[in-house]
Structure formats: C-alpha cells, structure tokens
Write a protein that binds this DNA or RNA. Structure first.
Lengths: 197, 197
DNA sequence: ACCTGAACACCGTTCAAGT
DNA sequence: ACCTGAACACCGTTCAAGT
C-alpha cells in the first residue's frame, strides 16, 4: 500500500494553521506557541505560513479576532436562553463571560494583550459586546438600573468580570469558588447600578 | 589612558540583572525579554546568569516578587497619606492600585501570569494586600460597609480594579478616562458594599 | 564560588528557487 | 498563486574549562 502523497498545495492552510494554533493554545500557553511547530503539525514547510500570515503577530491577531467572534456568539446564546427579563439576562451574561474567560485563558490573554489593536480587532470586540451593551440600554429605559452612559456602565461591569477572570486564571482565586463569586459580584454590581431615590 | 578592566567576578550580578530586567520591561514587553540580552547589557557572558537564576522562569518570578513588594509599599504609603477615615483610605487604595497597574503594565502581567505560583510569590502578594484587607475589616467593624468575609469582599474589590487596569492596558479604555472611571468604580463599589437596612 | 566559551537544539524571518 | 530549502541572526540551556 502506498501512502497517499500530500499535494503540493495544501488548499486550506490558513484555516488549518488557525485550528492547530487553537489546539496548541489550550495545551501549552500563548507564550510557547511556535510558527515552525504549527507548520510541522499541519505538515507543511516552516516558510509556508508566510503566504497567509505576514508574521507571527498577524496569526495571533487572527486568533484573537476569532476569539471575539466565538465569545460574542456564546454571550448572545447564553442571554437568549435566559429569557427576556433584565436580571436573568444580566446574570447569564456575567456567567457566560467568566466561563469563556476561564475556559480559554490563553486565548483571552491574546484577545486583550493586543496593544496595537488594528481596526478589525476593534470591530470584532465591539461586535462581541453589542448584545450586553444593548441589555444595559434596555435596562435603563425600563428603569431597572440608574441612567448614565451605557458605554461607561458596560465598561465598569466588564472590568469587574474581566478582573474576576484574571484572578481566577492567575490562581489567586480557586476556580471552585467561581460561581459563588460571580453571583456575589452580580448582586453587588446590581446594588451599585440600582436607581437611587 | 587605559580602560578599567572589568573584574572577573561581577560582585552583584543578581541585583544588576534584575535592575536591567526592570528597565527592559518598561522599554519592551515581557514577551521580548531575553536572558542573553540582559547578560549583554550587564557586560557578562550569556551563561553567567545561570549561577543566580536556574532558568528564565526563575528570573521572571523574582521580578514578580519584587513587583509585589513595590506594589505593597505604594499601596501602604498612599493609604497612609489619605489619613485615618475609611472612605478616603479606600479611594486612595483604589487610585494607587490602578496607577501602579497601568504604570507598570508588563510587570503586572508578570505578577499575575505566574500560573505555577510558588510559596514565596504567594506570600509576597498576600503581604502586598495586607493593608487594604485590614482596611476592609476595620470598615466592617466601624459599620461603614456590610459585614461578610473580608477576604471575599477584598477579592471582589481587587477584581474590579484589576479589570479596569486590564482594560486600560489593553487599549480598550483610553487612559485619559482613568481617574474618572476609577472614581465611578469606587462610588458604585461603595454602593454595593453599603450596609443594608 | 563564580564566570567563560563552545555546543546543541530550537526560534522568526527572508529569499531564491521550485511546482 | 502557493510552497520549499537553505541561510541568517537570534534564542534558552548545558557543560567542560578557566580564575
């Protein structure tokens, strides 16, 4: 039996590299991700990725971009599954965010480590957070939470969640306490956002 | 004139390497920090650091350790300068933390990226946060904030600040809005911590 | 006890050349 | 248009040898 010869042209090298990179990202860290190793895994020469990603940074940015897309989808579907009421939707958003952030720690690091964020990345992150932002506007319109710039309120909420995820991922918080802490954070967050009489 | 010959033994290579590393950390990122480059800057062979740091990880851990010590000092002195009342001290802590975290972005990344935190690092971080933790206990005893596990309350507060710093460092928040956002966060944090009647 | 120099196995990036 | 192979300038780590 002859081994099927690998064609000279891979066909979908870009997608294969990204897929392989995501696997490597969960196995090892983002630190030790090597272009040459990815090329090896996909079965292609170490110079081949250059056609699809001008340099390593470009591949990492593409990973971050896909990460924002997946995050957006998970946030959206978690909120949809929570029904139409404000508070359950907010809780669902918070849980889903921390869940994603701790399940994909290395990817999240990449998503937020992009100092020189290009426009594509900026758009992707804005799109991922569109639904929760809308939730806040809706909550304000319904008088569930105090008025104010939704962007500002959303940023503070996101910061609290991102900080929780960061502490969990760094090992300062045991992840077994995760759900309890998220519930606590949401409760206090709501207290801080409640309309004042 | 003859150039003074460099002695064979450096004398304080460990300290010199750490100092040089901190400079490199603010110039470039933590990513691109190279042991060989540090050795070069200090004027020593690339194998010399091995005597003082078994590997690169050990040097990074030492940097993180020093970072926690400096953070602790800054938090302490900022709180002391704010006087004895609860709220000014809390505000001072929050501002000082975000200030340190954004002024030393790469260092902070190192301090929280240490997945396999050894005991020394754990102790250093606990020591750095001892004063704010005490503040929370005091605030509870004085009835300024709701009772509850101080560790838990402190963790939530730290998470909010850490998240803000993370969003600022990633470029998602313009750092010009920093003080305003911190003030806003503190206000809402206090609302979330206020005793409930 | 502390440091050097050569060696090893890796990197990312570049570029002429192949298909 | 897409990929290869050799080359270049770097890494971290190891280890015999020097002072």
């Amino acid at each position: 039996m002859s081994v099927a010869p690998r064609p000279y042209h891979h066909g979908n090298l870009r997608a294969a590299l990204l897929e392989s990179a995501e696997r490597a990202l969960v196995e090892e860290g983002a630190r030790d991700l090597s272009l040459r190793d990815l090329a090896r895994r996909v079965g292609v020469s170490h110079a081949a990725p250059r056609r699809h990603f001008p340099d390593k940074r470009a591949l990492l940015d593409a990973l971050a971009h896909d990460g924002f897309e997946r995050l957006g989808e998970e946030l959206q579907s978690a909120m949809d599954a929570a029904g139409g009421a404000f508070e359950p939707r907010l809780v669902a958003f918070c849980r889903a965010y921390v869940r994603f952030a701790t399940a994909h720690a290395a990817l999240l690091e990449l998503m937020f480590a992009a100092k020189h964020r290009d426009d594509r990345l900026r758009d992707a992150s804005a799109h991922a957070f569109a639904a929760p932002l809308q939730l806040i506007s809706d909550g304000q319109a319904a008088g569930e939470i105090a008025p104010g710039d939704p962007e500002r309120v959303g940023t503070l909420a996101l910061a609290a969640l991102q900080g929780l995820a960061s502490l969990i991922n760094s090992g300062m918080i045991e992840s077994s306490d995760r759900d309890e802490l998220v519930a606590d954070a949401v409760e206090r967050l709501l207290l801080g956002l409640r309309p004042r009489h």
